[in-house]
Design a protein around this nucleic acid. Structure first.
Lengths: 120, 120
DNA sequence: TCCTCACATCGATATATGTCGATCGGTCGC
DNA sequence: GCGACCGATCGACATATATCGATGTGAGGA
């Protein structure tokens, strides 16, 4: 061996040039690393994931009471999750008389759209 | 109008059959709603998102010290994030002498692979 | 005008998460 | 064996999050 802190030989899995601790392109190009993470964070909850799935399957906007009926959660909690999805730019809400209807945001970012489309 | 608790007329945005509160297909088919959410949760952090991006760009496994050099975080924090990605099944780690190298899990679930491929 | 209904917001609480410093364990070179 | 190095783990801490009950708000019906 050539040394612990220098260049180790890595026969089966060769590394880059001089082994360990090569500088690697660190950052996601573009300004949207945090924005992209926010979309994933919004989908990182089972309830919200199923909400998005319901909206992706539905052909028409979905009422809040549909969600409260579908999930065993209180109305404030449903409202909280919908607000999270709205903040992430994944859904839009429309007030119509007494009811509020929700649908996938048609102006969703392209990156978010790609992710949501995976849940078709 | 026909009534608040009965069937509202919804001219521009027609809903399903009798308006609000129709039962909607609630669940993601398959057992993997929570597993899918776990993948999104793993990607819902800027540091981990960039780690996955680095691994997706790299042609060879990446050493821990590469990550500690790329991010302004302590070594225990880097180790913590790598453990999260490992628990989510997104990466695998290989011990080689002193160093531990990480790469995208070649046996990642198909759903996870689709998401990671979006970060190419 | 008053009541009801649908939904949002507030306050509280328990849990999860990101980060750090300190320490431990394993793998070398000497 | 000893010491150096890499990386994982532990304990602590601050913050974020998921959830609930209670309350506020706005729209409609009676």
């Amino acid at each position: 061996m050539s040394g612990a802190t220098a260049t180790p030989t890595r026969d089966p899995i060769p590394l880059r040039i001089r082994g360990c601790c090569q500088p690697v392109a660190p950052r996601i190009p573009g300004p949207d690393a945090e924005e992209c993470a926010a979309v994933f964070r919004a989908l990182g909850d089972t309830t919200r994931l199923q909400m998005i799935h319901m909206l992706a399957e539905a052909t028409d906007p979905v009422c809040v009471c549909d969600f409260t009926a579908a999930f065993d959660l209180g109305q404030p909690t449903i409202s909280h999750h919908l607000a999270k999805l709205r903040e992430a730019g994944l859904i839009v809400s429309t007030r119509r008389g007494i009811w509020t209807f929700h649908q996938l945001n048609p102006e969703m970012s392209a990156a978010a759209r790609e992710v949501v489309d995976l849940l078709h």
